[in-house]
């Protein structure tokens, strides 16, 4: 074997080895890389109880209620299997909408109420003009009525 091939092999092996190490480290830290917990996970008790964490899911349709003070918002976060009630006092992001993605940071209070200190909107990777979105929605509705 030529020395340069040996070198190349050594580099290749080194990089592959580092890859394996990185994969193992990442696997070990998996829990810390979780940005948010789903309502199902929270109800199953997988979320930390004594410290703040984030929950993520969709804002359930028709669940957003504002308190008379005009600042406190209550809504339900759902992953379609389980739901968690959330209260939050503060300004909501522009993309916060019923039926859309949301990530809230806070602590689980009494009675399973999630007291959020920050609410972030999570949007998807679809980009299109409003007319196209409307047409898509109508098509989906038509499909739904057809399949019923």
């Amino acid at each position: 074997m030529k020395s340069r091939h040996k070198k190349l092999l050594a580099i290749g092996l080194g990089v592959a080895g580092l890859g394996v190490i990185a994969a193992l480290v990442l696997n070990a830290f998996q829990d810390n890389l979780v940005f948010f917990f789903s309502p199902t996970q929270v109800i199953a008790g997988e979320a930390p109880k004594d410290r703040a964490f984030r929950i993520g899911g969709l804002v359930e349709a028709d669940s957003v209620k504002r308190d008379p003070d005009g600042l406190t918002v209550r809504f339900l976060v759902t992953d379609t299997a389980k739901t968690i009630p959330v209260t939050y006092k503060g300004i909501l992001p522009d993309l916060f909408k019923e039926g859309k993605g949301v990530v809230a940071e806070g602590k689980l209070g009494e009675g399973g109420m999630f007291m959020a200190t920050q609410v972030l909107a999570k949007h998807d990777e679809n980009y299109m003009p409003p007319e196209a979105a409307q047409a898509l929605e109508q098509a989906q509705k038509a499909q739904a009525t057809l399949s019923q």
Partner: peptide
């Protein structure tokens, strides 16, 4: 691999791009 606040890729090898064509 992980759940993130950042959305997924709009363009990838495995699916049609999820963007209007001019965008």
């Amino acid at each position: 691999w992980w759940n993130t606040l950042h959305q997924g890729a709009s363009i990838s090898m495995t699916k049609a791009p999820s963007m209007a064509s001019l965008m």
